[in-house]
Design a protein around this nucleic acid. Structure first.
Lengths: 210, 210
DNA sequence: ACCCTTATTGATGCTGACACCAATAGCCTG
DNA sequence: CAGGCTATTGGTGTCAGCATCAATAAGGGT
């Protein structure tokens, strides 16, 4: 798909190759799952021999950890793009929540579920997950604090509000692998109503953004 | 631990042995995780040879599915024991939520996380998870409907309320593998406040039960 | 244009776990 | 108490994936 099995040997700088491997691993992890991402698959994806992957990442665990961090960073950036930084907090948050309902983000829900479970067995991944959770937490809390500062949001405890919203998001993410998902109006609006309540916004404010 | 390696061969009825295997597998799945539960381990636990496990469960997948169902059934029964059926819905629900905070239930949170992730790759397990989710949903909805009937709870949509409560529970369960869990008052009371709000109860009603 | 650094190959040892099966020996029945 | 049904054993074939390493060749520096 990416290149023929008999591709000529091409030599790239260590740095570039490393990035390439990481991105391929991130994509595969997202699509097929972390445990299903093997050195062989990454190699195939790049049209190189499996040994090369092992050369850059002596342990597959390290590769997957970095791949996860890479994928999640990408997710975060598309949820909270720099471009939105100029917008009002309400609008920024509304967009974030809307994007979460997009098709693409079911995959990220799956990946989080994957990583959170796998982190049970792998201390390194566990640390990475905790780290990424902290970053997401800080980012969301910052938006909320912004809103409190501008007077758009009303909450005595921005961090607490952030955590409650994240629980709603993660709770729904829990069902990411359900093949015949259980649908109900209460679930469709849950993150919006939760955020609106926690931030003292009139019902519908965030839901009707954009 | 359970028996010496050289234990005499004991012959049990197929039915009894099957149950024994299932329970051992359920316990191991709970303690070490579904993928980490191997035929060898189950065999060791029972002091038999691995081949025997394969005899009763030709595919390890089937065993794990049944083991999961078995474990979760046990969990459900200790969350909503028959003995509580005589209590008022408020009390029954309060106890349920309190029990969820107990030490033992972190393990169940882990198991659910485990199963929900693994169900991504295994259609059979996926079906079992969906089935167990439905049972839990029905059980909780029944309690809520009871409460509405007695006038203790006030909600136009018992199922919707149930789902919102479950999202809170599952959302918190998401963090079951966090080694240095992030604590915050908002998280400690989340399920209670959620349930109280959804069911039109005065704040603290469920939290202060028992 | 040459050489030398090092990116890349290819091949292999090893491990863990499932699946399969013929042989063995409890236990129940008649 | 004998006999047979079948639970149980033990051994084995297989497969996938990780890890490792000496050999090879690409391409930048001089």
């Amino acid at each position: 798909m990416t290149s023929t099995p008999q591709a000529a040997r091409t030599r790239k700088s260590a740095e570039e190759r490393r990035r390439e491997i990481l991105q391929a691993a991130a994509r595969l992890s997202l699509e097929r799952g972390l445990e299903r991402t093997t050195m062989q698959q990454v190699a195939d994806e790049l049209g190189v021999r499996p040994g090369l992957i092992g050369h850059y990442f002596p342990s597959i665990d390290e590769l997957l950890c970095e791949a996860f961090a890479c994928a999640v960073t990408g997710e975060r950036e598309s949820l909270l793009p720099q471009a939105d930084a100029v917008l009002a907090p309400t609008r920024r948050l509304g967009r974030l929540l809307h994007r979460l309902n997009g098709e693409d983000f079911v995959d990220f829900g799956r990946l989080w579920l994957n990583a959170r479970h796998l982190s049970r067995y792998r201390p390194t991944l566990n640390a990475v997950v905790a780290e990424q959770e902290a970053i997401m937490r800080d980012a969301l809390t910052a938006v909320i604090e912004d809103g409190v500062r501008t007077g758009e949001f009303t909450t005595p405890d921005p961090l607490g509000a952030c955590l409650v919203i994240l629980v709603a998001i993660d709770g729904l993410g829990t069902y990411a692998n359900d093949t015949s998902p259980f649908t109900h109006p209460a679930l469709d609006t849950l993150v919006f109503t939760t955020a609106e309540r926690e931030l003292g916004l009139p019902a519908g404010t965030l839901h009707d953004i954009d």
